[in-house]
Amino acid sequence: MITIYHNTRCKKSREGLEIVENSGKEYKIREYLKDPLSEDELKSLLTKLNMTAIQLVRKNEKVWKENFKDKDLSENELVRIMVENPKLIERPIVENETKAVVGRPPEDINNVV
């Protein structure tokens, strides 16, 4: 099963959803702003992405710049911050059973669908 972590207001996320839809494979949409990830879910996703938490942070978001930008934060602290502020999670993310990708550019999604 493919999961897309989706933000309906994001153009890149909508483009990513279109790629997933056109794959013909079974998928589910998780609107992570409405249905936030748990810390364990985010850690699992980071493992599948082969990324550190800081690599997944949207550093141009106002909440990041105003509250966290110049702080020395641990991996666990960054995960907690993203769980509490899901807007900070880069998007879209598409996940299958074994790996995940950030759809930037959206064509990267073809690697998991």
Score class of each variant (00 low, 15 high):
Glu15Tyr: 10
Ser74Gln: 08
Lys69Glu: 04
Pro106Asp: 04
Lys48Ile: 06
Lys25Pro: 11
Glu84Lys: 09
Ala53Gly: 09
Ile29Gly: 01
Ser38Asp: 15
Asn60Trp: 06
Lys43Leu: 02
Thr8Arg: 15
Ile54Met: 10
Glu95Met: 01
Arg80Gly: 13
Lys12Val: 08
Leu78Gly: 03
Glu66Cys: 00
Lys34Asn: 06
Pro36Gln: 03
Lys87Thr: 11
Asn110Gln: 05
Asp35Tyr: 00
Ser13Gln: 01
His6Ile: 00
Lys25Thr: 06
Arg80Ile: 04
Ser38Val: 06
Leu56Val: 11
Thr8Gly: 13
Leu42Phe: 01
Leu73His: 07
Glu66Arg: 00
Ile4Asp: 02
Ala53Met: 03
Val20Pro: 02
Lys87Tyr: 06
Leu56Ala: 14
Leu78Gln: 00
Gly103Tyr: 04
Leu49His: 05
Lys25Arg: 14
Glu41Met: 01
Asn60Leu: 07
Ala53Gln: 03
Thr47Ile: 15
Glu31Asn: 15
Asn76Gly: 11
Leu17Asp: 10
Lys28Ala: 11
Lys62Arg: 13
Asp70Ile: 10
Ile93Asn: 07
Asn50Lys: 14
Ile54Asn: 05
Phe68Pro: 01
Thr3Val: 15
Ile54Tyr: 07
Cys10Ser: 14
Arg58Met: 10
Thr52Met: 09
Gly16Cys: 09
Leu73Ile: 03
Asp35Lys: 08
Arg14Met: 09
Arg58His: 04
Pro105Ile: 15
Leu45His: 06
Ser44Leu: 06
Asn110Arg: 13
